[in-house]
């Protein structure tokens, strides 16, 4: 059970941590100054959430590690984040769509997690939910603005919606570890979230005039450390200093 809790804490922590990295890459790249700062805000929230989950993972771990070790020193395969957050910042439409897909997911997941039988899970969820609601409002508004803005913005957001949809399958996979937790009432059944997720997403698509993509097969596998080709490059940069100067304290 402890291992299962650890796995899920890592999954949540890594998802926020890797996403915050993508968001920090956007610093000074915003389409206008206010939005630049807004994306940094979201990024900072995700770092905060990552820290909470990773700190808890340290408590659950059999090894003597800290959150920085988990964030910076693991091998690629040991990260359990969802693949969606590895996707690069191709353009603002991709940034927003990636965020939107995850925000809806987080909103549903964190809402359920506030009822978790594990007190720490519930507390982190409670604390994060306020931020997640703000993120969701921000990304939903942009989805509608881009979808119903100009021809160009419509086309760009539709492209992002189509391309990123592939990665959403990965959000709802339930491997053994998560099944164990669901049985104990510690996490919701992720597969059950999918219908609600799709409903909320399609409501926004409708307002935005965006079409639902169709895929025969969706991505999966991040639970087992299967990542996209992008992650390795992210880690190269992120882990550069701790890797290069093993004894240094920062």
């Amino acid at each position: 059970m402890k291992k299962d809790l650890y796995n899920f804490a890592i999954r949540m922590g890594d998802t926020s941590w890797i996403l915050s990295h993508r968001l920090c890459e956007l610093c000074s790249f915003g389409p206008f100054l206010e939005e630049d700062l807004a994306m940094t805000n979201v990024g900072l929230d995700h770092i905060g959430q990552a820290e909470e989950w990773l700190n808890y993972a340290c408590e659950l771990s059999d090894e003597d590690v800290d959150a920085d070790f988990l964030a910076y020193r693991r091998k690629e395969k040991e990260y359990r984040n969802v693949q969606l957050v590895e996707y690069p910042n191709d353009d603002f439409a991709y940034v927003i769509t990636r965020q939107f897909y995850l925000d809806v997911y987080n909103y549903l997941l964190y809402t359920k997690l506030t009822q978790s039988k594990d007190a720490t899970f519930a507390a982190i969820a409670q604390k994060s939910l306020k931020e997640v609601k703000y993120h969701l409002r921000h990304s939903s508004n942009w989805m509608v603005r881009l979808g119903d803005g100009t021809e160009e913005s419509h086309e760009r957001v539709q492209n992002a919606v189509d391309d990123l949809w592939f990665y959403t399958g990965d959000l709802f996979v339930m491997p053994e570890s998560e099944q164990n937790l669901a049985k104990e009432g510690i996490i919701p059944n992720l597969a059950d979230l999918e219908a609600d997720w799709e409903k909320m997403v399609l409501e926004v698509f409708e307002k935005a005039g965006i079409n639902k993509p169709s895929y025969e097969v969706l991505a999966s596998g991040s639970f087992d450390g299967q990542h996209t080709e992008y992650l390795g490059f992210m880690l190269c940069e992120m882990q550069y200093l701790p890797n290069k100067y093993q004894d240094a304290k920062w």
């Binding site: 990295h21 920090c24 890459e25 610093c27 770092i47 990552a50 820290e51 990773l54 959150a67 920085d68 964030a71 910076y72 940069e237 992120m238 550069y240 200093l241 701790p242 240094a248 920062w250």
Partner: peptide, 9 residues
């Protein structure tokens, strides 16, 4: 910013 050496940093 992508190479900060710790979460805090």
């Amino acid at each position: 910013i992508t190479r900060c050496p710790s979460i805090r940093a």
